[in-house]
């Protein structure tokens, strides 16, 4: 078989119908040629995937490794980083976790709060965004009119930059004339108006609320795809069984959305770990104890004047390990299922 034909050879369509002898010839060739052919297929496909893989390898894995090495040094400020393996140590990690362990009862170090807030954000944001997204998907899935328009509106916040949404929400939360407090006063709930984004009690929750606004449309899209994949006869069977609507959803439909839930949850959790833009635009690099998270702290340590490069790299590594903890079971399962 001639596999080394030049790219400008005749288009394949014509010869296929006339040249029926080719496959027979192919079967005559021995095992070793087949193997050689396979090997060359690998070699010939290299130009297609290798450059990109190398580029990603350099920027993703090379950078992560480099980041880890920096975290072992004590590089700080304007002086140049020196990579001396004899001086490598885990001091930055000990310092970080030591401060986290001090706790936050009497003020406590910023590390404790950033660590804690990261988890609060991760869990609360993920769970509520999933629930809201599921509710939206169930509502939209009721054979409603203008379904496309509804979906478009719910997903719209996802198309906006966090810089833009942070600017919008800072105005929404404005204590004197923002939409939230104005709306509360309008419905007679003026008593519960708050300084949403300056009161330490509410800051983090105000951020989470806005992020849920932005991400629930994404969850809706994922759940809608899951709902549409459930065969209709299962709804019918449940109805024949006499299950009322709520019971049907709880017993039949929602359990089948587990795959959708898992993949959406992974994406949400990973996002929660790297959420930066929104908080940075709303609060700058000093959000205070109540809204500080690791992603922001990492940036502050490295790029906001202090230039604690090594310490920032250690925080970055911790974030990476947390993300790995979320994604590796997921990717492994996808790989096992052959879904990749």
């Amino acid at each position: 078989m001639d596999t080394n034909q030049s790219p400008d050879s005749d288009p394949p369509t014509e010869t296929v119908s006339t040249d029926g002898g080719l496959p027979v010839e192919a079967t005559e060739s021995t095992e070793s040629t087949l193997q050689r052919w396979r090997r060359s297929e690998l070699v010939k496909s290299l130009p297609f995937w290798l450059p990109a893989t190398l580029l990603v390898g350099l920027f993703v894995y090379g950078a992560i490794g480099w980041n880890f090495i920096i975290s072992l040094t004590d590089w700080q400020g304007l002086r140049r980083v020196t990579y001396n393996p004899a001086e490598f140590d885990l001091d930055n990690y000990f310092e970080f976790f030591g401060k986290v362990a001090e706790g936050g009862l009497l003020g406590g170090p910023q590390e404790y709060w950033a660590f804690r807030n990261t988890f609060v954000l991760l869990i609360l944001f993920t769970v509520v965004a999933l629930i809201v997204g599921l509710l939206l998907a169930l509502l939209v899935d009721q054979k409603i009119r203008f379904e496309n328009s509804f979906r478009t509106v719910f997903l719209l916040p996802m198309s906006l930059s966090f810089v833009v949404t942070a600017v919008f929400w800072a105005w929404m939360y404005n204590p004197s004339s923002g939409m939230i407090n104005e709306g509360l006063r309008l419905v007679g709930l003026g008593a519960i108006t708050q300084n949403w984004i300056s009161d330490p009690q509410f800051k983090l929750f105000a951020v989470i609320f806005a992020l849920i606004w932005q991400f629930s449309g994404y969850c809706m899209v994922v759940y809608l795809a899951g709902l549409r994949a459930i065969p209709t006869d299962q709804y019918e069977a449940a109805k024949v069984d006499g299950a009322n609507t709520l019971k049907m959803y709880w017993r039949v439909i929602i359990p089948q959305l587990r795959a959708s839930t898992t993949s959406a949850a992974v994406v949400l959790m990973v996002f929660a770990l790297k959420a930066f833009d929104f908080l940075f635009v709303m609060f700058g690099t000093q959000p205070g104890r109540s809204a500080d998270i690791l992603a922001l702290m990492m940036y502050r340590e490295a790029f906001a004047g202090t230039a604690n490069w090594a310490y920032a790299s250690a925080i970055a590594t911790i974030l990476f390990v947390m993300a790995l903890g979320v994604i590796s079971p997921y990717l492994y399962r996808q790989y096992k299922r052959g879904a990749l």
Partner: peptide, 24 residues
């Protein structure tokens, strides 16, 4: 699939973990 896994993991990494090396 293996090469693909390596690539896909790149979607999920927090960008914070490459920022310092990137600026270097």
């Amino acid at each position: 699939a293996l090469v693909l896994m390596v690539l896909i993991a790149g979607i999920f990494i927090p960008y914070q973990s490459v920022l310092v090396p990137l600026s270097r």
